[in-house]
């Protein structure tokens, strides 16, 4: 019985993994094909995978121009989703997310302060990421302390997080406004939650950091599974819950910091993706982790496609930030989760 149930779970996982991989590739292709000059998605697909029988120079150029933004969007969704899953597990709170718990906003505030006070250092991405990382960790600790004052319940953690997130996202955007006047940045949306500003040469470092974080998370699969059921339960199986929390918070903060330093605040992907993943394949991190990553990438791509379409139809000069669209999708979901929780 256990054997057949497990095999069914495994089969389900493989099916959803394949379907979501296909979905991600499809959205990726559509994402690239949309723009001022529309390109046939089939042509995009052929160009991307080198299958084109007679490659047209124009198409190749446009695809390679749009590729960076598409990749940045995929990485953003994947990283934030993984960060959200880790945070939900280490806080054992299904409402956790890097934005809702204040990590993203404090990270961005730290980056803005860094640019203002040490502009020469902030030319290097490594420093920006390091500063953002310290900011994300501080935000997490601040939220945890505040929620402990408020009794430490699930909902008090969310309320504390929203307080921290609102304060620091406001603050960081004011600071970024100042930064823009200092830098005379050509980007109106410098770190305001848009993937358009990521440069091609920045993709490798983003990818590496995400890959390292994912690999580290894979080694955490079993400890996280045991951790779900309580501190003393994890201890009984030989895992130290304190270290699981530290490592989990470290990776989640690093992932958040990377995205904040390249893109800015993109909220709610980390909240929604783990819920969809657990709904599809259950809570075993062996299954839920890869699915969360794929769902996160798909959500980000879909949201950024909406961003592109809106700007095309409205005909505005600059585009909406991706973070605006994910908030519109994600916030109602948070409301739904809170209402469900309070009803219990």
């Amino acid at each position: 019985m256990a054997i057949s149930i497990y095999e069914t779970k495994l089969r389900n996982f493989l099916i959803f993994f394949s379907l979501l991989t296909l979905l991600t590739v499809a959205l990726f292709v559509v994402h690239i094909s949309i723009g001022p000059a529309m390109i046939d998605p089939i042509l995009v697909f052929q160009t991307l995978f080198g299958l084109s029988p007679n490659p047209q120079k124009v198409v190749v150029n446009v695809v390679s121009l749009r590729l960076t933004r598409a990749l940045a969007t995929v990485l953003t969704g994947a990283a934030l989703a993984l960060a959200g899953l880790l945070m939900q597990t280490i806080t054992r709170n299904p409402l956790a997310d890097p934005y809702i718990f204040g990590l993203s906003s404090t990270a961005l505030t730290f980056v803005a302060l860094g640019v203002i006070f040490a502009p020469s250092l902030m030319v290097y991405r490594h420093y920006i990421i390091a500063v953002a990382f310290l900011g994300a960790l501080s935000g997490y600790i601040l939220t945890a302390l505040l929620s402990r004052l408020g009794g430490g319940s699930d909902i008090s953690m969310v309320l504390a997080g929203i307080a921290v997130a609102s304060l620091f996202s406001g603050l960081s955007h004011v600071l970024l406004y100042i930064v823009q006047s200092m830098l005379r940045s050509p980007y109106v949306y410098f770190l305001l939650g848009s993937t358009t500003t990521v440069l091609q040469r920045e993709i490798p470092l983003m990818t590496e950091l995400l890959a390292v974080s994912t690999f580290a998370s894979l080694l955490l699969i079993k400890p996280l599974n045991a951790y779900l059921y309580g501190d003393s339960y994890a201890k009984q199986l030989g895992f130290e819950p304190k270290y699981i929390r530290y490592v989990g918070a470290f990776i989640a903060s690093l992932l958040t910091a990377v995205i904040v330093s390249y893109v800015g605040i993109v909220g709610f992907v980390g909240l929604v993706a783990p819920h969809i993943a657990r709904f599809l394949v259950g809570s075993n991190h062996l299954f839920s982790m890869p699915i969360t990553i794929l769902v996160g990438a798909s959500i980000a791509l879909a949201a950024d496609i909406i961003v592109k379409l809106i700007s095309m139809y409205v005909g505005a000069i600059a585009e909406l930030p991706l973070g605006v669209v994910t908030s519109i999708i994600g916030a109602p979901f948070l409301a739904y989760l809170i209402i469900k929780r309070l009803r219990e």
Binding site: P94, Y229, G230, L237, G238
Partner: peptide, 22 residues
């Protein structure tokens, strides 16, 4: 112990599988 944390939903089998981790 009298109880375990159940705030993240999971199935009975998922829980029981963790008992084999040692």
């Amino acid at each position: 112990e009298p109880s375990i944390s159940r705030s993240i939903p999971s199935s009975v089998l998922e829980f029981l599988l963790t008992a084999r981790y040692p």
